[in-house]
C-alpha cells in the first residue's frame, strides 16, 4: 500500500495517486491516509532545515505506516505514505524521477504553478514509476 501526494508550497494538494495492491480500499481508509499525510507535513517542515538533501527519508510514523518526504527547492513537497520501512532506497529513486517529471509539468506554459496537476501523461508516468519502484 502506497499513497503518493504532491503538496504545493501553500499547503494545497496538487496531485494524488494511490498505489494499492488490493481491490479498492474503503473511503474511510482513504481519509485516514490523507489525514496521516497531512499530519506529516508539520514534521516535514521541521526537518527540512536540518539537512541539505532534498530527500528527508521517513519523517513521521503511525503504527505501521511511514511517511517519507522529498522537498523540492521551490518548497513543493512530495509525500509518500507506505508500510514497508525497507524501501527507502527505492523511494529515493522514485522521488528523484518524480521530481524530473514534475519539472516537465511546471515548464509547460499552460500550467499555472501551485494548481492541481491534471495532465493525464503525468499521471500515467507517475503510476508507471510506482510500478517500477514500489511493487
Amino acid at each position: 500500500m502506497n499513497v503518493f501526494v504532491i503538496v504545493g508550497k501553500d499547503d494545497n494538494p496538487i496531485y494524488q495517486a494511490a498505489f494499492i495492491s488490493q481491490p479498492k480500499g474503503s473511503t474511510e481508509l482513504c481519509h485516514l491516509h490523507q489525514f496521516l499525510i497531512h499530519a506529516a507535513l508539520d514534521c516535514t517542515d521541521e526537518q527540512v532545515w536540518t539537512t541539505n538533501s532534498l530527500f528527508l527519508r521517513a519523517v513521521d510514523f503511525f503504527h505501521e505506516m511511514h511517511t517519507s518526504a522529498y522537498v523540492t527547492p521551490g518548497h513543493c513537497r512530495f509525500m509518500m505514505l507506505h508500510d514497508q520501512p525497507k524501501i527507502e532506497d527505492n523511494l529515493k529513486n522514485f522521488f528523484l524521477e518524480a521530481h524530473e517529471l514534475y519539472l516537465k509539468v511546471i515548464l509547460n506554459p499552460f500550467y499555472e504553478p501551485n494548481t492541481p496537476i491534471t495532465s493525464p501523461a503525468f499521471d500515467a508516468k507517475i503510476r508507471a514509476l510506482g510500478k517500477k519502484y514500489l511493487s
Binding site: 516537465k104 515548464l107 509547460n108 506554459p109 499552460f110 491534471t118 495532465s119 501523461a121
Partner: peptide, 8 residues
C-alpha cells in the same frame, strides 16, 4: 517551439 508543451 514545443518543448515541454502539453495542450490542456
Amino acid at each position: 517551439m514545443v518543448d515541454f508543451v502539453e495542450l490542456p
